[in-house]
Design a protein around this nucleic acid. Sequence first.
RNA 1: GGACCUGUGGUGCAGCUCGGAGUGCACGCCGCCCUGUCAAGGCGGAGGUCGCGGGUUCAAAUCCCGUCAGGUCCGCCA
Length: 570
Amino acid sequence: MRDALVASVTDEWIGRRLSVCGWVARRREHGEHLAFLDIRDRSGVLQCVVEGSLDVRPEYVVRVTGTVSQRPEGTVNERLATGSVELTECVVEILSSAEPVPFPLDGRTDVDESTRLRYRFLDLRRESLQRALRLRARVTMALRAAMSEQSFVEVETPLLWAPTPEGAREFVVPSRLHAGEFYVLPQSPQIAKQLLMVGGFDRYFQVARCLRDEDLRADRQFEFTQLDLEASFVTQEDVMGFVSHAVAEAARVATGEDPGEFATMTWAEALDRYGTDKPDLRFAMELVNLTDAFAETSVKAFQAPCVKAMRVPGGAHFSRTRLDALTDQARQLGAKGLAWFRVTAEGLDSPLARFVSEAEASVLGAVDGAEVGDLVLVVADEYALASRVLGALRVAIGAPPVSEGPYRYVWVTEFPMFEGVDDDGHLVAAHHPFTMPHPEDLDLIETDPMRVRSAAYDLVLNGWELGSGSVRIHRSDIQSRIFSALGISTEEAESRFGFLLGAFRYGAPPHAGFAFGIDRLVAIFAGVDNIREVIAFPKTQSGADLMTGAPKSITERQMRELRLRPSVKG
RNA sequence: GGACCUGUGGUGCAGCUCGGAGUGCACGCCGCCCUGUCAAGGCGGAGGUCGCGGGUUCAAAUCCCGUCAGGUCCGCCA
């Protein structure tokens, strides 16, 4: 039907008569004797010269047969890749006509996202989504190739799985053949891949769809795609190596840059220096601990277990309005307040300036090498809260847009094993209950559980958590101790995870794994702050698909077959 | 469950603080003109329950309350 993509029509083809197919991007009519048609296909745009009048409109699908010609002197278009040539003596066949489209497809207009989602099939025609999804395909190919090179085997796991009430809320699928019973869609192939380890597939991976019925965000959709992997007879370092290699290969394909060795820091260090477990290393503004300097302070606001500060370079010019907004943000995050100090040639400028001692003032004025023109922010509270609040302000003030700055990968290791206590007084697992404790901390499980570190690790890129993994427990004695610490009885463990624990009794190899979000990785490579921009058919924040209208009611017959009763909406 | 932002011809915006006739800009659409344009150009035209409902007022796009939709975030996401 066509001889070439439009982008391949270059000077070398001059004189050849050929056909191209595509959409009418634009037309320029000059009366009944001359018209220009810009034909768009996935490769680009090509100008076609029609001698005579035209009966085509934008977005008509056409086949144009013409002669590749050098453009006349002075009519070359430098802005077009094909701008030195054009098709002449054109015959235009209309393959499909088109109504006027509801929004411009030229990419110069920012169209309201709900309109774009309703007409996603048109939005997909636009260059930004074409580029993003093609980038995504290249990234996924690179990941598959890298895993395959490392002797990993791709194995598919079920989408219809058994309910395991733990962790993320699951999507539920009613069973027709077993009335009143349900499958769930997997939050991740976690248990399936551990069973594959028992099954002797010592290096498994999968480009896996995961489904979680939790509230959506810019970086979270109900359904998302992970590179999921698990390996036997390996250490944590081995797994980090496998993942680093795969991500580096994807990065080379996507960005053209070799990311080099990924940085590593412990969870404790990340919290201390950046106030978060997903530090954005593209910029400095590290947190400074001033607890000692304020141990004897008479400033009431600073009489707290921990006093932390952060220097904002050039921040002295922040308006009072902006400082008030930052204070509000700090309060929203749980801080009692936010103290600020402008560093000026005359000293500190702050509502608290007259309360701080001379020694304290000199410490504040020199935080992180502060200079005149800088701003110093201080939060005094419990250590973790002060750190997290300043960490959030650090990102709010200093983080470059996702499309800017270098790519800074960092492994965050030694996460805490437990992250608190639930309503029943039981410890809550920070990762999942099959995570191996740090070998040095085994003795603390019963005595000082909150200090137990785990063999869990996250990969972070530019402040985005790409994914996480851990060494799994393969020994039943350790598993029992963890269940016990979590308040899970033997009977309960058996009923929830019996098939996994059962499998482990038949020779479970030591194993460890990882999973990371391909949507997020591609979004960062594409320079967009929203994973919907790298997903063909995403849902809105309320989980609606504006194109199909999903979710929708089903027929009474379907309800009957599933033994479901309709309920009143809301 | 909660906080904040947005909603005005097909599209993007202005108008809203400080109420006074659906007012304006750009694009698109329709018609006519135009033989080298490329975001073509010229002339003319059509197109609106100002998201929806209620309230205040002589009068509401504008003020108030509620609601719906979209977005950002908190909670949630082992």
